[in-house]
Design a protein around this nucleic acid. Structure first.
Lengths: 206, 206
DNA sequence: GTACGATTCAAACGCCCGTTTGACCGCGCC
DNA sequence: GGCGCGGTCAAACGGGCGTTTGAATCGTAC
């Protein structure tokens, strides 16, 4: 499933991501993961300590970069005297899209992320909120400056709606299927455009 | 977990819904379910045949009514000469909200539904699409009549975004927490209002 | 009261789970 | 050459899994 020149740790992370996306955290066993990664069963506990830690590392590997890109893009979008709403939304949405287009399993990761939202598990929620909650707060603050007439509660609701729409569409749960002649890249590129237009209109609603 | 005057079947369905919401389909075992329902372990296979069938019945029990209500509400919304967009959206959103407010575990069911979207499982996807896909198509057709300038593909994208936002917010994955003095009912009632306003603006975006 | 189908029950089936163990390997270093 | 050490390995641990079985119990019609 992964080329042999990757380290054991990296091969486990890649296989785990794919299988967690497909079968869920409880549904994918370490035996399946280590078989797909072509490593010994004991390697998971040797390198990661436990299955729970492996799950956290699957998130950390992707989210560190995803959120760094989001923060960077946000800074760029906010640089002008009069920042554009579409640019700020793009700073939130496009890095996720690019990740989902990434060759090395980024698409699978978007599904893993969707599963994480559905998990009620306290440990995972705390881990995600502790490590990545600040990103959402930065976007909320930036959007608050762009839309001063919008009250705080309404803004948070709408950010929540956008997150749901983004996750849902990036993990392609819905009925939208790629049309024949359109490439995967074009399909998702359009998805981002559509979502930004939709979200921008929703954000400025009276 | 459920009052003893419910039948064995009903108690199993109730407990399964709660535990599937909390731990996922793979993560909740039949031993946990039957213990919570105060029935014998073998009762699941006696009444439902298998765990997979139990999962389907958990969906059927709620979705039959949810979608019947949606279809009814859609007919009411489309009755006037000039139907209102907010009413059509309300016909889609409010029944889901009411279900999530239902005393008998409707809130848990919204989480189960969110998990179903994350499942890649072919059997479950086919079951849901075969039994309930027509509802989405009816709303798409109604909205298409109200927004004739919007091309079909764009409309389907936006419906997908709305579904994602609805699921995400009804299963309260996000950071939105109920404020102190606001009752659970008021909180969710507002959620529906916010979502309808947001979605309507997004739908009529240029 | 007895016969009979529907339901419940405790126990067992074989299988897979996450984790641990202790032996073994390859390689740089004294 | 021998030592230490990070890494890999096959095997085993106890326990939980979904499902099946066959006997016990129930409710009702005769």
């Amino acid at each position: 499933m992964n080329a042999p020149h990757f380290s054991t740790k990296e091969r486990i992370l890649g296989a785990a991501e794919t299988l967690f996306a497909r079968h869920g955290f409880a549904g994918a066993s370490l035996r399946q993961v280590t078989a797909a990664a072509h490593v010994n069963l004991a390697a998971v506990n040797y390198h990661f300590g436990s299955k729970d830690n492996l799950i956290e590392e699957v998130f950390r590997r992707r989210l560190d970069e995803l959120n760094a890109r989001r923060i960077d893009a946000l800074a760029t979008a906010m640089a002008p005297q009069i920042p554009l709403l579409d640019d700020v939304l793009g700073a939130f949405i496009r890095p996720a899209l690019e990740l989902s287009l990434d060759q090395g399993g980024g698409h699978a990761f978007m599904r893993v992320l969707a599963r994480a939202y559905a998990e009620h598990d306290e440990r995972l929620r705390r881990f995600l909120s502790d490590n990545y909650g600040h990103v959402l707060r930065e976007f909320a603050s930036a959007l608050g400056r762009l839309l001063p007439h919008l009250d705080k509660e309404e803004l948070y609701w709408r950010l929540d709606f956008i997150t749901g729409a983004l996750t849902h569409s990036m993990a392609d749960f819905g009925p939208m299927k790629r049309r024949g002649q359109v490439s995967e890249e074009m399909h998702r590129e359009r998805a981002a455009d559509h979502l930004i237009r939709f979200a921008a209109a929703g954000l400025v609603a009276p």
